[in-house]
Protein backbone atom coordinates (compact mmCIF):
# COMPACT_ATOMS: atom_id res chain seq x y z
CA UNK A 1 0.00 0.00 0.00
CA UNK A 2 1.14 3.53 -0.61
CA UNK A 3 1.68 5.86 2.33
CA UNK A 4 -1.16 8.05 1.08
CA UNK A 5 -3.50 5.09 1.41
CA UNK A 6 -2.43 4.59 5.01
CA UNK A 7 -3.05 8.28 5.53
CA UNK A 8 -6.47 7.81 3.97
CA UNK A 9 -7.28 5.08 6.50
CA UNK A 10 -5.89 7.19 9.34
CA UNK A 11 -8.10 10.09 8.33
CA UNK A 12 -11.12 8.13 9.51
CA UNK A 13 -10.07 8.56 13.13
CA UNK A 14 -12.16 10.89 15.22
CA UNK A 15 -10.56 14.09 16.52
CA UNK A 16 -11.79 17.09 18.42
CA UNK A 17 -12.39 20.54 16.91
CA UNK A 18 -13.89 23.85 18.02
CA UNK A 19 -16.05 25.16 15.19
CA UNK A 20 -16.56 28.90 14.72
CA UNK A 21 -20.02 28.49 13.23
CA UNK A 22 -23.29 27.02 14.35
CA UNK A 23 -25.01 24.32 12.40
CA UNK A 24 -27.37 21.46 13.02
CA UNK A 25 -26.33 17.80 13.22
CA UNK A 26 -24.97 16.30 10.04
CA UNK A 27 -25.74 12.71 9.04
CA UNK A 28 -22.82 11.20 7.21
CA UNK A 29 -22.48 7.63 6.01
CA UNK A 30 -19.72 7.07 8.54
CA UNK A 31 -21.94 8.27 11.38
CA UNK A 32 -23.66 11.36 12.68
CA UNK A 33 -21.71 14.36 13.88
CA UNK A 34 -22.74 17.55 15.56
CA UNK A 35 -24.57 19.68 16.28
CA UNK A 36 -21.95 22.34 15.57
CA UNK A 37 -21.99 25.08 18.20
CA UNK A 38 -19.60 27.97 17.73
CA UNK A 39 -16.92 27.82 20.44
CA UNK A 40 -17.89 24.41 21.83
CA UNK A 41 -15.60 21.43 21.23
CA UNK A 42 -17.00 18.47 19.30
CA UNK A 43 -15.79 15.30 17.57
CA UNK A 44 -15.47 14.81 13.82
CA UNK A 45 -13.41 12.50 11.60
CA UNK A 46 -9.92 13.79 10.87
CA UNK A 47 -10.60 14.33 7.17
CA UNK A 48 -13.52 16.58 8.03
CA UNK A 49 -11.47 18.45 10.60
CA UNK A 50 -8.75 19.13 8.02
CA UNK A 51 -11.33 20.26 5.49
CA UNK A 52 -13.01 22.65 7.93
CA UNK A 53 -9.65 23.94 9.06
CA UNK A 54 -8.66 24.67 5.47
CA UNK A 55 -11.88 26.60 5.06
CA UNK A 56 -11.01 28.39 8.31
CA UNK A 57 -14.18 27.21 9.92
CA UNK A 58 -12.69 25.67 13.03
CA UNK A 59 -9.77 25.39 15.39
CA UNK A 60 -8.28 21.96 16.00
CA UNK A 61 -8.02 20.63 19.51
CA UNK A 62 -4.75 18.71 19.84
CA UNK A 63 -5.33 15.16 21.14
CA UNK A 64 -4.37 14.45 24.78
CA UNK A 65 -1.16 12.75 23.81
CA UNK A 66 0.04 15.71 21.77
CA UNK A 67 1.64 17.23 24.82
CA UNK A 68 5.34 17.74 25.57
CA UNK A 69 5.25 15.89 28.90
CA UNK A 70 3.30 12.89 27.63
CA UNK A 71 5.51 12.62 24.59
CA UNK A 72 8.72 12.90 26.63
CA UNK A 73 7.51 9.98 28.73
CA UNK A 74 6.72 7.94 25.66
CA UNK A 75 10.15 8.74 24.26
CA UNK A 76 11.91 7.68 27.47
CA UNK A 77 9.83 4.52 27.67
CA UNK A 78 10.63 3.73 24.05
CA UNK A 79 14.34 4.18 24.69
CA UNK A 80 14.26 2.02 27.80
CA UNK A 81 12.22 -0.86 26.47
CA UNK A 82 13.69 -3.57 24.29
CA UNK A 83 10.34 -4.03 22.61
CA UNK A 84 8.05 -1.59 20.88
CA UNK A 85 5.88 0.27 23.34
CA UNK A 86 2.22 0.87 22.73
CA UNK A 87 1.66 4.17 20.97
CA UNK A 88 -1.11 6.47 22.19
CA UNK A 89 -2.79 6.06 18.88
CA UNK A 90 -2.78 3.56 16.01
CA UNK A 91 -2.15 6.35 13.51
CA UNK A 92 -0.08 8.78 15.57
CA UNK A 93 2.13 9.73 12.65
CA UNK A 94 -0.80 10.51 10.34
CA UNK A 95 -2.57 12.51 13.01
CA UNK A 96 0.57 14.40 13.93
CA UNK A 97 1.36 15.17 10.32
CA UNK A 98 -2.13 16.39 9.47
CA UNK A 99 -2.79 18.34 12.65
CA UNK A 100 0.66 19.92 12.87
CA UNK A 101 0.75 20.47 9.13
CA UNK A 102 -2.63 22.13 8.82
CA UNK A 103 -3.03 23.79 12.20
CA UNK A 104 0.37 24.43 13.81
CA UNK A 105 -1.08 27.57 15.44
CA UNK A 106 -3.68 25.47 17.30
CA UNK A 107 -1.08 23.30 19.04
CA UNK A 108 0.94 24.86 21.84
CA UNK A 109 4.70 24.44 21.31
CA UNK A 110 4.06 22.84 17.94
CA UNK A 111 7.64 22.78 16.70
CA UNK A 112 8.93 21.11 19.88
CA UNK A 113 6.16 18.52 19.63
CA UNK A 114 7.07 17.91 16.02
CA UNK A 115 10.68 17.24 17.01
CA UNK A 116 9.76 14.83 19.79
CA UNK A 117 7.39 12.88 17.56
CA UNK A 118 10.10 12.68 14.93
CA UNK A 119 12.52 11.43 17.62
CA UNK A 120 10.07 8.74 18.71
CA UNK A 121 9.59 7.71 15.10
CA UNK A 122 13.37 7.53 14.59
CA UNK A 123 13.92 5.44 17.73
CA UNK A 124 11.20 3.04 16.65
CA UNK A 125 12.48 2.82 13.10
CA UNK A 126 16.00 2.02 14.25
CA UNK A 127 14.59 -0.60 16.61
CA UNK A 128 12.61 -2.00 13.71
CA UNK A 129 15.71 -2.18 11.54
CA UNK A 130 17.60 -3.99 14.29
CA UNK A 131 14.80 -6.52 14.75
CA UNK A 132 14.58 -7.09 11.01
CA UNK A 133 18.31 -7.71 10.96
CA UNK A 134 18.00 -10.26 13.77
CA UNK A 135 15.00 -11.89 12.13
CA UNK A 136 16.75 -12.24 8.79
CA UNK A 137 19.97 -13.53 10.30
CA UNK A 138 18.10 -16.21 12.24
CA UNK A 139 16.49 -17.20 8.94
CA UNK A 140 13.06 -16.80 10.49
CA UNK A 141 9.89 -16.96 8.50
CA UNK A 142 7.70 -15.66 11.27
CA UNK A 143 7.76 -12.59 13.46
CA UNK A 144 5.52 -10.92 15.95
CA UNK A 145 5.16 -7.15 15.69
CA UNK A 146 2.86 -5.97 18.43
CA UNK A 147 2.33 -2.24 18.85
CA UNK A 148 3.80 -1.30 15.49
CA UNK A 149 1.52 1.14 13.75
CA UNK A 150 0.35 0.70 10.17
CA UNK A 151 2.58 3.45 8.85
CA UNK A 152 5.62 1.86 10.47
CA UNK A 153 4.74 -1.57 9.12
CA UNK A 154 4.23 -0.07 5.72
CA UNK A 155 7.66 1.56 5.78
CA UNK A 156 9.35 -1.86 5.70
CA UNK A 157 7.23 -3.04 2.80
CA UNK A 158 8.05 -4.45 0.38
CA UNK A 159 11.59 -5.00 1.64
CA UNK A 160 10.95 -7.27 4.62
CA UNK A 161 8.23 -9.57 3.24
CA UNK A 162 10.08 -9.92 -0.05
CA UNK A 163 13.37 -10.68 1.66
CA UNK A 164 11.56 -13.33 3.68
CA UNK A 165 9.99 -14.74 0.49
CA UNK A 166 13.41 -14.89 -1.09
CA UNK A 167 14.90 -16.58 1.96
CA UNK A 168 12.11 -19.14 1.90
CA UNK A 169 12.74 -19.85 -1.77
CA UNK A 170 16.44 -20.36 -1.19
CA UNK A 171 15.70 -22.69 1.71
CA UNK A 172 13.27 -24.70 -0.43
CA UNK A 173 15.87 -24.96 -3.13
CA UNK A 174 18.60 -26.08 -0.76
CA UNK A 175 16.23 -28.68 0.64
CA UNK A 176 15.66 -30.05 -2.84
CA UNK A 177 19.30 -30.02 -3.82
CA UNK A 178 20.61 -30.98 -0.40
CA UNK A 179 22.24 -34.29 -1.46
CA UNK A 180 24.44 -32.54 -4.00
CA UNK A 181 25.46 -29.93 -1.43
CA UNK A 182 24.88 -26.25 -1.69
CA UNK A 183 26.47 -24.77 -4.77
CA UNK A 184 26.15 -21.72 -6.93
CA UNK A 185 23.55 -23.27 -9.20
CA UNK A 186 21.15 -23.39 -6.25
CA UNK A 187 21.18 -19.65 -6.08
CA UNK A 188 20.80 -19.09 -9.77
CA UNK A 189 17.82 -21.45 -9.73
CA UNK A 190 16.15 -19.67 -6.90
CA UNK A 191 16.89 -16.40 -8.61
CA UNK A 192 15.20 -17.43 -11.80
CA UNK A 193 12.19 -18.91 -10.04
CA UNK A 194 11.00 -15.46 -9.04
CA UNK A 195 10.10 -14.75 -12.63
CA UNK A 196 7.50 -17.49 -12.67
Amino acid sequence: MDPYEIEFIGENRVVSIIPNFTYEKIYLICGEFGPFRAGLPMNVPLWLAVMLKQKQKCRMVPPDWMDIEVLENIKEEEKRSRFFTKMPNEHYMVEAKLILGNAPEDVPRASEIKTIIKDIWDIRMSKLRTSIDTLMKSGGNYGRLDHLTMMEINSVKPLLPEAMDELYRIEKMTQKTMPTSLNTSTFSQSGSSQNL
Binding site: N141, Y142, R144, L145, H147, L160, M164, Y168
Partner: peptide, 19 residues
Protein backbone atom coordinates in the same frame (compact mmCIF):
# COMPACT_ATOMS: atom_id res chain seq x y z
CA UNK B 1 11.62 -23.74 6.02
CA UNK B 2 14.58 -25.81 7.11
CA UNK B 3 13.53 -27.81 10.13
CA UNK B 4 11.27 -30.75 9.51
CA UNK B 5 8.84 -30.12 12.31
CA UNK B 6 6.02 -27.64 11.85
CA UNK B 7 5.53 -24.91 14.38
CA UNK B 8 2.17 -24.12 15.85
CA UNK B 9 1.45 -20.60 17.02
CA UNK B 10 -1.42 -18.81 18.64
CA UNK B 11 -2.71 -15.43 17.49
CA UNK B 12 -3.91 -13.40 20.44
CA UNK B 13 -6.68 -10.91 19.97
CA UNK B 14 -5.22 -7.67 18.62
CA UNK B 15 -1.72 -9.05 18.15
CA UNK B 16 0.26 -8.40 14.96
CA UNK B 17 2.42 -10.82 13.04
CA UNK B 18 4.33 -11.34 9.85
CA UNK B 19 4.00 -14.82 8.39
Amino acid sequence: GLGDQDVEIELENGSQHIL
